[in-house]
């Protein structure tokens, strides 16, 4: 250990310097007045608050430089509240600083550690009392108690079981079936290939039979983005190419990374960008990931047209949409 803890001698606390208000009664009077004025400003704030609450209509707007047109009711309500609180604080602090005693005081510390005799007395007590309980001498009680205490925690955990159903196969399923029409979201209009120009996109959902309502749970899995490019721009294997129709290709809009809606489509580069974490997918190569944290391409929905010429799903998604999970089949 260092033998030189403080090479210079401690000169001790600096001498106390009196404030003006301590020696000059006029300065003290002035400080008193200042504190009073601060308190009065707070009173003014409260009055402003009350006036704003009852007197300023919510439909009144005023113009403020920098902020622009602002709601007067909200502004003065807040300003009043802020003033009424802030100036109480300022007054109290100013009072404490100028008029309350400002002599620094010294308080002494003692070590946190208890005295040795207290500590040994404590240890002795624990030993003695534990001995009285006899836990050490009765191993059967000890073991069964351990078992019971260990198991009792199971019941509250079990009680949480009914928080939700088991996932079963739901994460792998969507409402897309072979022949389901693609309808615009919102609007629910079925689309024909001619409705989509080259460079065009459409946000679509599966068409539901009349009477069936679309819930958020459905949208969270079914959302699909329809994109049309020139067919010769595709760079797909024959199977994936057969899932497109005249340059129209459909992808799940739910990001394969963390489930945000991937819909930033750049017509020039044919890239899809997810605004949450910037994963970038190449539409011409079946939404292959070309940048960012996503590890899998967006699932592609096979499409074709039905007898009436509307775009329909050729088959359900062949993989789970959305973020990964442990049981996911990710071949």
């Amino acid at each position: 250990m260092s033998n030189e803890i403080a090479p210079l001698t401690d000169p001790g606390l600096p001498e106390h310097i009196h404030r003006k208000a301590d020696v000059d009664p006029r300065a003290a009077k002035r400080a008193e007045r200042q504190v009073g004025i601060l308190f009065l400003l707070s009173v003014f704030g409260t009055l402003l608050f009350i006036y704003a609450y009852v007197g300023i209509d919510e439909s009144i707007f005023i113009f403020l430089p920098i902020m622009g047109t602002t709601n007067a009711h909200q502004l003065f309500l807040g300003l009043g509240l802020a003033m009424s609180l802030f100036f109480i604080g300022m007054a109290a602090v100013h009072w404490a600083k100028t008029l309350m005693p400002d002599h620094e005081v010294i308080d002494h510390r003692k070590e946190q550690r208890s005295k040795d005799e207290d500590r040994s007395a404590f240890v002795a007590t624990v030993k003695e009392r534990a001995g009285e309980a006899g836990l050490g001498r009765r191993p059967f009680i000890k073991r069964t108690m351990g078992l019971a205490l260990g198991l009792v925690g199971l019941s509250p955990i079990l009680l949480l079981r009914d928080l939700g159903p088991l996932p079963e196969n739901e994460l792998n399923e969507t409402n897309w079936k072979a022949g389901t029409r693609l309808v615009t979201d919102p609007g629910d209009r079925p689309l024909k290939p001619s409705d989509l120009e080259v460079g065009g996109v459409a946000q679509v959902q599966p068409e539901f039979p009349p009477g069936k309502e679309r819930h958020l749970d459905d949208i969270a899995k079914d959302s699909v983005l329809l994109i049309r490019i020139r067919p010769e721009e595709f760079n797909l294997d024959p199977e994936r190419l057969s899932w497109t129709y005249e340059g129209i290709i459909a992808f799940s809009k739910i990001c394969s990374h963390m489930g945000c809606a991937v819909a930033l489509y750049e017509q020039t580069t044919k890239h899809l960008l997810c605004p949450c974490h910037q994963s970038t997918f190449d539409v011409t190569r079946a939404a292959k990931v070309i940048f960012g944290p996503a590890a899998r391409a967006l699932p592609q929905l096979a499409i074709t047209v039905d007898s009436e010429g509307y775009i329909v799903a050729k088959a359900p998604f062949n993989e789970a949409v959305g973020p990964s999970f442990w049981e996911r089949d990710s071949k």
Partner: peptide, 30 residues
């Protein structure tokens, strides 16, 4: 430990500071 006693200096300062924090937050809210 060298400083100011709770009563009255620190009470006034700390109590006053509560109102100041609230006031600044309300100012932002407004």
């Amino acid at each position: 430990v060298v400083g100011y006693p709770l009563m009255p200096v620190y009470m006034a300062k700390a109590g006053g500071f509560f109102f100041i924090v609230f006031g600044v937050t309300a100012f932002l809210g407004a």
